[in-house]
Design a protein around this nucleic acid. Sequence first.
DNA 1: CTGTCAATGACAACCGATTGCCAAAGATTG
DNA 2: CAATCTTTGGCAATCGGTTGTCATTGACAG
Lengths: 340, 340
Amino acid sequence: MAMQAAGTDRPATIHDIAAICGVAASTVSRALSTPDRVNIRTRARIQAAAAELNYTPNSQAKALSSGRTGAVGVLVPDITNPFYFDLIRGTQLQLKAAGYTQLLVDTEESDEVEASAVEQLRKSADGIIVAASRLSDEALLAAAAKIPMVAVNRDVPGVPAVVIDTPSATSQALDHLISLGHLRIAYMAGPLTSQSSTLRWTALAAAAEDRGVEVRRLGPFAPKTQSGAAAADAAVHSGVTACIAFNDLIAIGMLQRLRERGIRVPEDMSVVGCDDIFGADFCNPPLTTMTSPIEQAGRVAVSMLLAQLNPLAGGGSRSRSLMPTHLTVRGSTGAAPAAL
Amino acid sequence: MAMQAAGTDRPATIHDIAAICGVAASTVSRALSTPDRVNIRTRARIQAAAAELNYTPNSQAKALSSGRTGAVGVLVPDITNPFYFDLIRGTQLQLKAAGYTQLLVDTEESDEVEASAVEQLRKSADGIIVAASRLSDEALLAAAAKIPMVAVNRDVPGVPAVVIDTPSATSQALDHLISLGHLRIAYMAGPLTSQSSTLRWTALAAAAEDRGVEVRRLGPFAPKTQSGAAAADAAVHSGVTACIAFNDLIAIGMLQRLRERGIRVPEDMSVVGCDDIFGADFCNPPLTTMTSPIEQAGRVAVSMLLAQLNPLAGGGSRSRSLMPTHLTVRGSTGAAPAAL
DNA sequence: CTGTCAATGACAACCGATTGCCAAAGATTG
DNA sequence: CAATCTTTGGCAATCGGTTGTCATTGACAG
């Protein structure tokens, strides 16, 4: 059995170490955080004692006195959406590497929940990463003034952001469909509050006009596989031969519905998704989609946030990062059906 | 512009309220947390002022002085595994409903990372939920002695747990396969450190002996779609006509590989998964699998943990909860191929 | 009219660290 | 040998609450 902390089962504090080493608590604090301010021999003793007692600083106390919490809030609209899994994984990895803790919050696609989460996190986190914010531009800007923030897939001047460049990939998708002979194409829109969906539609409409093909907008549809049924029916009813969906969830849902209705993909209808989430490669048929570097976006967002928090080295941190995407062609797109 | 906190942009504290109401800070604290200890009129004034200043208690300070953090750690072996998405969603929902914050940690399938996370969380969380722990029985028991804990899918006497009863579902799966005429069946095992995999195999082997069919164990395989390729090859090589996979990820990976190799499912080979994760219903062919109430398990785990933390009402909290599962038959299982 | 008790709210210690300020001790220099 | 500077480490305040203790007050019973 050990000598010192035999009886005490509660975690060691800075005072325990101070008592053992015969120094003041403040000296222990300095030895551990500002080693240069302490004599090398005292420091060694203190560090040895700390290791002996298996000391870890109490993060609450640290946060209270220093003002920094060592935590970063990550806000996502829907924790069950696989898109955010990849994002969360990216942030988690990078945050852990930097010694930060991730506070994950599901804002349930609600601007109110999101606003209150921001208010809450303002005190318990050093910064936040907001994915696909549902807040208005003004509200987001106001929030960014209160707490260091990086937005993901949300472009508001004045708010540092990581934006996945799906809009430019939509023209690749469009060209792909055109090259397969499609002339009547639909865009299956996402939520009205989603800026991504709006930007994607704008880019698509511009590209369509440029190429002289007709693209109509249908929806909005909730970004869930279940809404794919409605989307599929709407697409069939509108008479298009190909669709570009707001995201893979809708696209996968469409595939299921089209199969149920006996409409063959891609012979009768081509479907393009967006994001290349888990499942896009093994659905039936495998989904042609715009592949996004989601996890990487999460890592970049964390890097930008940390740069904001610790503005140490030279070179001001970039305030906007555009992530490239590309079209991944699989089995859900094919030649347009011959006109009757 | 407002009267009081016009200039100050930093969050209001208990002292601000005290100053406004002309009472001591402690009175404010009591008015908000122990309303009965304060005169109803003073209380009203304080509450009004608190609302006016948009006061929210500082969670760090609260944690430091009260010893309770209002946070619960959730440890999962692999944050990218869709199984845990559902679990996380369940815990997130229930924790939020109870006013707790979720601290999500990815232990990377490593017992060391897991142990250090537990040690860390011990000070910054009121309790933890450990999914599919990789710790030894002794280590887990020791950890549970230090901090309130609920294990998920890990059965160690003395540690409260939520266990999804997949072992008993394996005999359903086996009977299903037998009824389809399969006589040579393989179990594609998960990680050696996974207790779930071991229990599932034990149950399956017992059931097989009971029914007089041959079930061999192959693997272990990592619980990822990528390992499905190796699993598929092993299954084909072993000459079985049906497999029961440790989980859906492996099963889905197998489907992909079998398709590549031109082996038809279910005509040449039947595949059964486990968990019914996102994707199991739209892969090709749709996967026959043992459906687990994963999200519900997360919610139950939180309830059990909270009951442990606040042992208020009568009826000691249950220390073990078994979640029922059932077989969901889809397209990946079919009649055994006729013997040559 | 006085003694007892409950209700109320102030005071101060405390949670575990950080940090500004200062004094003591040792090193350096003229 | 004295004067000055530097290193080192202690003291105490602070962060924002919680909570035990105690004094004051008014109500009520005897």
